[in-house]
Amino acid sequence: MKALVIDDSRVMRRIVTGILRGVGFDTVEAGDGKEALERLTEHPDVALCCIDWNMPVMTGFEFVVEARKRQEWRDITLMMVTTEGEQGQIVRALAAGAHEYVIKPFTPEIIVDKLELLGLVGARA
């Protein structure tokens, strides 16, 4: 399974990529929402996008809105992974089509738990 990690912080992309690879994902990275849309075109087998809210060029929220407009991307699971923890933003992201919302800082276990709830990885023993 392939995941697209979208964050303007290279360090954060590496952290999330490491967690995802640890549970069997192949990963692709993007530094902003616009680049992420290009990556989705290049890698149509993406099953999961982990998205930061605050990025230059195109925010994570704008990415979610744009991705949900495209029929071919409607099956991709979208998970916000961001510092934005205000209730209104969480509601907006979920209403726009995000499946899950993780607030930074997080532990690897939180990401894996969310992936289990989404059915993207098997439950841990």
Rank of each mutant, 00 (worst) to 15 (best):
M1I: 14
M1P: 07
K2D: 10
K2P: 06
I6C: 04
D7K: 06
S9T: 04
R10T: 14
R10Y: 12
V11S: 15
R14A: 12
G18Y: 07
I19C: 02
L20C: 06
L20N: 02
L20D: 00
R21H: 10
R21V: 10
V23Y: 03
G24W: 06
G24T: 10
F25G: 02
V28R: 04
A30W: 01
G31C: 11
G31E: 14
G33M: 06
A36E: 02
A36V: 08
L37H: 05
L40K: 04
T41F: 06
P44G: 13
L48T: 01
C50K: 03
C50W: 02
C50A: 15
I51T: 03
W53A: 06
W53P: 02
M55A: 09
V57R: 14
M58R: 09
T59D: 09
F61K: 04
E62S: 13
E62D: 15
E62V: 11
F63C: 09
V65Y: 00
A67V: 13
K69D: 05
R70Y: 08
Q71G: 05
E72P: 05
W73Y: 10
R74T: 09
L78R: 03
M79Y: 00
M80F: 05
V81F: 04
E84A: 11
E84R: 12
Q87E: 15
Q89V: 09
V91P: 06
V91W: 11
R92T: 11
A93H: 00
A93E: 03
L94C: 12
L94V: 15
A95G: 11
A96V: 09
G97Y: 01
H99Q: 13
E100R: 15
Y101E: 01
V102A: 11
V102H: 05
I103W: 04
E109I: 04
I110S: 11
V112K: 14
D113F: 02
K114E: 09
K114M: 06
L115H: 02
E116H: 11
E116F: 10
G119L: 14
L120K: 03
G122D: 13
A123T: 15
R124P: 02
A125N: 14
